[in-house]
């Protein structure tokens, strides 16, 4: 039977842990709102751009001489994985999930005889990959999401990826990030950015696009616009992945901290029960002692 003082100390310590986790939950909730808003407000630009690229890309479908960013350079040997994770932990399975996905993917690609490089955005993702595939990590960028995702950062990363692509260091580039589904669910999503793939958002507007495509005039030529558009589009894709990942991180943290707070509550209840029992037992045994002492007289 643990003594009363020990129990009291445990209860107090769990209580203070609970205070911390519930505070973290509130902070995450507030940040989530902000992150969701910025993801929301980034949408018009991304959607417009996607529609434009979509309309233009269609006219290059299967045509020789399409820009390499769109069509790829015909090889599939050197892969770059951009791993978007968080800098901080305590957000449930957020980083573990994305880390597991990345490790599987790396192993798969390596087994197929491809070379793989990893660019980590966020410290925790690096920690996940480092143990097994430390030699594949090119660089880790930290503190990208300190004040929410910044477009200028995404642009710098995109520039770097483009440079590597142009110099033939990579053939295919995939961004792996946690897609924001709802405040409590995230989905690990691989997004291939080089060569560019039209994704489902675009296909929803297919009809509209077909209509538009027939009507549009291009100035200067389609090739020139596409040439300008594709690098920007890469930046936008990366920016979007960063925004989604940041929102997901806050959502995951909120859920994790909500759980932790609840668990701490359960623990406090249990400990309090044990504490009360112990106290009652102590009182009872004291009473017995007094009574039997009195009887003995």
């Amino acid at each position: 039977m643990p003594n009363l003082k020990d129990l009291k100390i445990r209860i107090d310590s769990v209580k203070s842990t609970q205070k911390i986790t519930s505070a973290m939950k509130m902070v995450a909730a507030a940040k989530l709102r902000k992150a969701q808003m910025s993801a929301e407000s980034a949408r018009p630009y991304a959607e417009r751009m996607e529609a434009m690229v979509g309309a233009l890309a269609k006219s290059f479908d299967g045509v020789q001489g399409a820009p390499e960013l769109l069509a790829g350079n015909g090889k599939d040997e050197k892969h770059l994985i951009v791993l978007v994770s968080s800098d901080r932990g305590l957000c449930g399975g957020f980083n573990a999930n994305i880390g597991r996905f990345a490790r599987n993917k790396i192993a798969q690609l390596q087994q197929a005889g491809k070379s793989v490089k990893v660019l980590c955005l966020g410290r925790k993702g690096r920690d996940q990959v480092r143990r097994q595939f430390g030699e594949t990590i090119l660089e880790t960028m930290e503190d990208l999401t300190k004040n929410g995702a910044q477009y200028s950062d995404a642009d710098a990363i995109a520039l770097r990826i483009r440079t590597m692509f142009e110099e033939g260091e990579i053939d295919v580039c995939t961004v792996v990030y946690n897609k924001f589904v709802s405040a409590i669910t995230q989905e690990v999503t691989p997004l291939q950015v080089i060569p560019f793939q039209l994704d489902e958002v675009e296909s929803n507007e297919e009809e509209e696009n077909d209509e538009l495509k027939a009507l549009y005039e291009y100035e200067p030529s389609e090739e020139d616009i596409l040439e300008e558009l594709l690098p920007r589009n890469l930046s936008v894709q990366i920016f979007r992945a960063m925004l989604e990942s940041f929102a997901s991180e806050q959502g995951a943290r909120m859920a994790a901290m909500d759980n932790a707070t609840r668990n701490a509550g359960d623990m406090i209840d249990n400990l309090t029960l044990t504490y009360n029992r112990a106290r009652q037992a102590a009182i009872t045994s004291e009473l017995i002692e007094i009574i039997s002492g009195a009887e003995a007289l």
Binding site: S38, A42, P44, Y45, Y151, V236
Partner: peptide, 9 residues
């Protein structure tokens, strides 16, 4: 007329 930046409308 719409003016859109990557961060917002």
């Amino acid at each position: 007329f719409e003016l859109v930046s990557p961060a917002k409308l």
